[in-house]
Design a protein around this nucleic acid. Sequence first.
RNA 1: GUGAGUAUAGCUCAGUAGGGAGAGCGUCGGACUGUGGAUCCGAAUGUCGCGGGUUCAAGCCCCGCUACUCACCCCA
Length: 416
Amino acid sequence: MLLFKRPKGTSDIYGTNMLRTKRVEGILKELMLNWGYSEIRTPIFESTELFDRSVGDTSDIVQKEMYTFRDKGGRSLTLRPEGTAPVVRAYLENSLTNYGKPMRLFYLGPMFRYEKPQAGRMRQFQQFGIELIGSSSPLAEVEVFQILMDMLDRLNVKDWQFHINTVGCQNCRDEYIKALKEYYRPLLPNLCSDCQRRFETNVLRLLDCKNPQCAPYKKDAPHFIDHVCEDCKRHFDAVTSSLDALHIPYVIDHYLVRGLDYYTRTAFEVKYREGSQDALLGGGRYDLLIEQFGGNPTPAIGFAVSIERLLLASKDLDTPSEHPLVYVVTFDKSRLQGAELAFELRRAGIPTVTDVMGRNLSNQMKEANRLGVCYAIIIGEEELKVNEFTVKDMKTGEQHLVNREDIREYILSHSC
RNA sequence: GUGAGUAUAGCUCAGUAGGGAGAGCGUCGGACUGUGGAUCCGAAUGUCGCGGGUUCAAGCCCCGCUACUCACCCCA
């Protein structure tokens, strides 16, 4: 019986899984280089209030999903459940405002939410996100959507659906909420208990209730788009028409409200057809958040994706293999010469492995084969005498005697 | 928070009526003391998730617990 197990909802990543993860992360970093976004790494924990105040204290995240603890100084800290609030905090704290607008940032790292784990949902998960800070123009949406398309394309994710909605701004949201409340008030007794509670705390969330008991009433609920102000309406129209112009297929989802409070105007999600955790990516505009954090009024937009869900959705992405190029086979008389040669090859940038088990020739060849190397270099007594080592091509089985001093060049000039 | 399923070797799993704990793959070694992949032979690894009960006897039956998986809710 083992003494320790990994905590619930966490995973150990190794082997093929690690290779696929690195592949996806590599593609994402390359993508960002292409789009002129620079990476930012913020702490894994932040003050609890940062999330309370941004994500919203009636949200599921804050109410039941945060890993909150007190440190020895009595501070309330929280393992970050999402990336936008920390990035905005860092943006202001480090005066990145001085770098000019727009600011293009991306992040990649672990997030934490206390939930019941299941397929595509972990308590610690890896999230990639971008933030485009400083533009209120629909052109910002255009860039973000293009990045999103480019990303899904590079990762070979098929069968996704783009959902978009507007959630208004500080001027018009209250009016919509009023309209929604008026609509739902007489229906209240017919709704599920969750919705009865949400009616008071956060009416918007009634829209994405999946309870069949509430479903019939959703159909006739007022739509955001019919209640937003002139500016928001114009913005939304510009956004959708640019989607049309870019030939990006989308559906207007009047029930899309998102789980975080800081969104304004544009909110969107990419859903993936397979699997119960169908939300692959989520994002939106957050024009008020920076001001709310004490900065100058600065509009911004961004999105976040989970690496785990990307991996589930890009199954046919080919797995890269990582194996050494050379295996140096030694005998009792040549162990140190082998170690020396192996070291030399590695310094020349040739991935090399040699025996540390004291195995015989046959078993070293077996290991070389298992590791998938291209060449085995055999250093036996005969070879030592003439200072010429046997280089064996593991694919063809051919072998040649090569002078000790020429081996590095020999390997470098032969591809495998 | 709600519901369902599973738990036997490193992995995938079998285990018949309650009576000796197994197979395949993998690992290690040998056949072959200087040549891998193919083949053959051999070996190691198990408190059968934990605790209790029934029984002469429990991997199997009963009760409790735990862990994991899946789903709901919500999300990424």
